[in-house]
Structures are given as structure tokens and as C-alpha cells.
Design a protein around this nucleic acid. Structure first.
Lengths: 188, 188
DNA sequence: TTCATTTTTTAACATTTGTAAAAAGACGCC
DNA sequence: GGCGTCTTTTTACAAATGTTAAAAAATGAA
């Protein structure tokens, strides 16, 4: 569980004692490619650390399906919207490869938050870190055209593009696959 | 401080004792329209509760300036990017009206987080709530065309549109002011 | 009120992106 | 290897949005 352990430790430094409380709640899960691990319109009661594999989150519009997040080793699968409100979320998360995951039930997590200041701060930091990542995607998307964002993606996550169908990447960049093809023809 | 008090209480229920610890750290600030309260590329050391007034956050691109957030009574002005990383942020926040604000120094807040589980959980909830709001804007923006988002805005914040120049709203919706004008002509 | 300034709308044209459909390429499976 | 399926690219055309500039409307100060 190398990747998951690193992820947990990097969020907020924890004493051995508190780290173990968290680790005790994890259980390993193996799931195949194409499995739908988070379902829109359903209340979710777990989060998952990605030990190996790739996933994407998407929302369905009236006549389109838009990918807005990719996760890989070291990332966390979590519908915050569902978790925070304890209500159905609007996004679905689908595995794009066979995945090895560590599951953590949100109820257990909530319990830890209420009883240990250190873990409450770990949870705060987790939310803060995801928040600034979300803000960054949001803002990056606001003022960079798709072509630039594609080039950024090539540089920051060159491996991702190898592992994910272009249709999903086009959706992530906010253009049609035809337009992404045109961009790729230009950049090449 | 009616609005600010409500805001604080609504984030996470606090006992009188912990609420007071937080309130003790607030100080009132009055600032005029057009004041730049958060500056891009500067490390920020405070957050502000908006008691009265309106503000907007924007980022500067190479040849454009994009508004991505509006705040009014009950909202919080905070550069999470700067606060979490303790590094300069990329956004600026400008007051669009004369404002009455309550300032809270992040250093004092950090201190409270480290010493009180309840306040750490308040801080967690704060980050979580802002996160899901950010996610909602992000996702809403992804799959709704500007026209729909304008109609949404009309319904959810009819007052906002009265208080804010259309140029900022166009920027917020991700279109030029000319396009927003066309949308308004259609909707009317 | 009147004038100057700012904000909003309208117009004409250029550019970008989308749509639909077909062609080309990649891949696994028997 | 050959077949079918899925992914990616290309093409022609349509639709939406941007750019630039000017006109109209609203706002604020003297």
C-alpha cells in the first residue's frame, strides 16, 4: 500500500498513533475496468485511495457526458458533494483500468474527526488541498484556451494521455473530439 | 454583525465557548468601493467576512481579466490558494461597493485549529462547503451554455445582477460582453 | 438641466468550434 | 491471419462566438 500510505502522510503529518487509527479503517478492494464506483443520484458512504489504476469522474447533461476529473495512483476517489451534504451527488466515477483501491467508510472517518484534533486537522487539510486543486482546474480552464490546456496536460501528465481515450480528454478540455484532433494536428 | 454571526454558526454548530474564541479574534474593517483587498502574487494573512457589500475575485490572463467569483452579505473573502500553501495566490479580490467586513488573521485561526477539535472541525466544514460550492460552479460551467447559466443567475441571484456591471458578469459567464448582450436580447 | 463619462446594445464581418458522416487506424479475439 | 469493434482523424458545411467600431442609453457631477 505504498501509494496510499504516501498519500495519507502527505496530506498532513500524523503521529504513528493517529496514522494507525486511520489505517485500521482501510480495507482493500479490487475492481475491474469499467466498474462504476460512484453513482450519480446515490448517497455515497465511502471514499477510496487509488493504489493502482486510473479513474474518471463525469456528469451527464441533457445530451452530453462531460469528464471533469482524472485520478490515478495516489489520488482519492470521493464525491464531496454527496459526502458533505449526505445527499445524492451529481457525478459518477468510472474505473478506466483494473484498480487496486483502499476503501474508507465515511462514517468511520467522521467518528475519527470528532474524537481526535489531529485527525480533524488531517480532514481539514484534505478538504483544503482538494479545494485548491479544484480551484486551479477551474481557473485554468477559465482563461486558457483548450489548445494551451492540452499542451499543459501533455507536460504535466504525459502518461495520462497514453492511458485514457481521447474522447474523455476532449471532454475534459471542454471541446469535442473533432476539435481535439484538430489541436493535435496543429501541435504535432 | 448579524450576517457574519449567521455565517459562522451555519458552517458548523459550535458551543458558546468555542464560538466566543472565534469571535474574539474578529476585528471590524470598513473599506471603500474599488479597494483591492486581496492581491495576486502576494501572500495573504487574513480572511474577511462580508457583513455588507459586494466583491469579486478575478485572475489576469495575458490579454484578459476574468471574474470567477462574486461575494456578498454572508460570504467569505479568502484566498485559499495563498492560505493553504502560504504562498502568493493567483487571484485578486476587489470591492464593488463600500464594504463592512470582519477580519480574521489566519495565524490566529491556525492556532485555534491546533488546540480545539471543535474548531478544527469548523475549519474542515468551512473548506468542505467552499469546495462543494466551487465544484458546483465548475461543473455548472462545464455543461451548461452561457445562456442557461445567465438564466440560472437571474433566478438564484437576481439582486447581484443589479449591483454588478455587466462586463463582470459576462466575464463570469465566460463570454464577451457583446455575447451577453445578445443573450439578454434573446431572453427578454 | 446639461455635459461628460461610463455602460450597454447593435451591426458587420472574421474566426472558431460544432455536427454529421466517412475514412483510416488500432486492437483484441476467434 | 482475418474479422469486427472501437478509437482517431479528416472533410464539408452549419452555427455560435469573437472582434472592432459605432450608436444608444444610463449615470453622475457641475
Amino acid at each position: 500500500m505504498q501509494n496510499t500510505l504516501e498519500t495519507i502522510k502527505n496530506i498532513y503529518p500524523l503521529k504513528e498513533q493517529h496514522l494507525n487509527l486511520l489505517l485500521q479503517e482501510l480495507s482493500v478492494v479490487e475492481l475491474p475496468k469499467n466498474h462504476l464506483i460512484i453513482k450519480a443520484d446515490k448517497v455515497e458512504r465511502s471514499l477510496y485511495f487509488i493504489e493502482t489504476g486510473v479513474a474518471r469522474a463525469y456528469v451527464d447533461g441533457r445530451d452530453n457526458r462531460i469528464t471533469f476529473w482524472f485520478g490515478m495512483e495516489g489520488d482519492i476517489i470521493l464525491s464531496y458533494h454527496s459526502y458533505v451534504n449526505n445527499k445524492p451527488g451529481y457525478e459518477s466515477i468510472e474505473l478506466l483500468e483494473d484498480c487496486l483501491l483502499y476503501e474508507l467508510k465515511t462514517e468511520a472517518l467522521e467518528q475519527l474527526y470528532n474524537t481526535h484534533t489531529e485527525l480533524a486537522n488531517w480532514g481539514r487539510k484534505l478538504a483544503e488541498l482538494i479545494l485548491i486543486k479544484t480551484e486551479e482546474s477551474y481557473i485554468g480552464r477559465l482563461f486558457k484556451p483548450a489548445k494551451e490546456r492540452y499542451i499543459d496536460l501533455l507536460q504535466t501528465d504525459p502518461l495520462l494521455i497514453q492511458r485514457i481515450p481521447l474522447g474523455h480528454i476532449a471532454s475534459y478540455l471542454g471541446v469535442t473530439q473533432v476539435t481535439l484532433s484538430r489541436i493535435r494536428a496543429e501541435v504535432r
